[in-house]
Design a protein around this nucleic acid. Structure first.
Length: 276
DNA sequence: CTTGGTATATTGCAGGTCTA
DNA sequence: TAGACCTGCAATATACCAAG
């Protein structure tokens, strides 16, 4: 069974991503783009939203239009900077389902020990079996999509800086943290390859990195390309990625650090690197 | 717009290290 | 122990910028 994921809106001016996975529609956006969000039809349906801040989250539901609740929170809460919301494309999500989903998410966050801004666990209204299974299905689509496409684990504890990778203690290799994920490799080029593979196979990041992608052979500047590159003297300068593209890898350690910085700047997200 | 100088980037080789 | 893989380095190329 194939899932069709359709990313319907992507722009460079804002960081709004809309995913349609029938029958679910998921939107991830920055708070600053609220005015643009309000123009999306996807924001005018009932659904569940999660406000994300540095150290807390808020789970809410909208039985009317999601955007109205978001605009309210824009006035009331100052700590959030990002929002994820989802609903049914056709808008057919009833109150018992939004109650159920909200409660389920809050419970799950609580169970995982993630700090929430919610005062209550939400309503526990009656929900019939069919609605419940439909709601559960939606939630698993949302979780899957976030994890596999955007690589965002809703339930991941982000502040686990204390969790030191054993390889670090042994002074081996290179340790990278990006978007809550960590990578450990015993060489800078390997670590670079792994992180770039991770980033360039995720559409949401890739769209911001087109300046580094070429149709032809990769170069040191456009380091992702469609073909492998071998130097005049026969040195293989690229490595093939999972998606079949080729990544220029023949970099010195400092050049690799530069690439990390370029990508981090472009994404507006930090890439923490420690060489040891 | 040129010039000339400086900073930064690129290149692939030499010589390590790892692994089968 | 050969071959693959890694890394720093020096040579070279390119970008940048201020001054004429």
């Amino acid at each position: 069974m194939t899932k069709h994921i359709f990313i319907s809106k992507e722009g460079n001016d804002n960081s709004i991503s809309v995913f349609n996975i029938e029958p679910v529609v998921i939107v991830i956006a920055d708070r600053k783009d609220l005015s643009t969000i309000s123009k999306l039809e996807e924001a005018h349906i009932p659904g569940i939203y999660i406000l994300l801040g540095e150290d807390k989250r808020y789970v809410g539901q909208a039985s009317g239009e999601i955007i109205n609740r978001l605009l309210q929170h824009d006035k009331n809460k100052d700590w959030w900077h990002k929002v994820i919301f989802f609903g049914r494309e056709d808008g057919h999500l009833d109150k018992s389902q939004t109650d159920y989903l909200e409660n389920k998410l809050i419970t799950k966050f609580n169970d995982m020990g993630l700090p929430l801004d919610n005062g209550t666990a939400g309503n526990l209204s009656y929900i019939d079996k069919l609605s419940k299974s439909k709601a559960n299905e939606m939630l698993s689509i949302v979780e899957d999509t976030l994890l596999n496409v955007v690589n965002l684990d809703l339930f991941e504890v982000e502040d686990d800086v204390q969790a030191v990778d054993p390889l670090i203690e042994e002074n081996l290799g290179v340790y990278i943290r990006f978007n809550g994920q960590s990578f450990t490799q015993n060489s800078a080029r390997k670590a670079y390859g792994q992180l770039m593979e991770y980033i360039f196979t995720k559409p949401i990041y890739r769209e911001k990195l087109s300046q580094f992608i070429t149709d032809g052979k990769p170069t040191t500047v456009e380091f992702v390309g469609q073909f492998e590159k071998i130097s005049d003297r026969g040195v293989k300068l690229t490595r093939e990625l999972k998606n079949g593209e080729h990544l220029y890898v023949n970099f010195s350690r400092s050049a690799i650090e530069n690439k990390f910085n370029l990508v981090a700047d472009q994404l507006g997200m930090p890439i923490e690197v420690s060489f040891s």
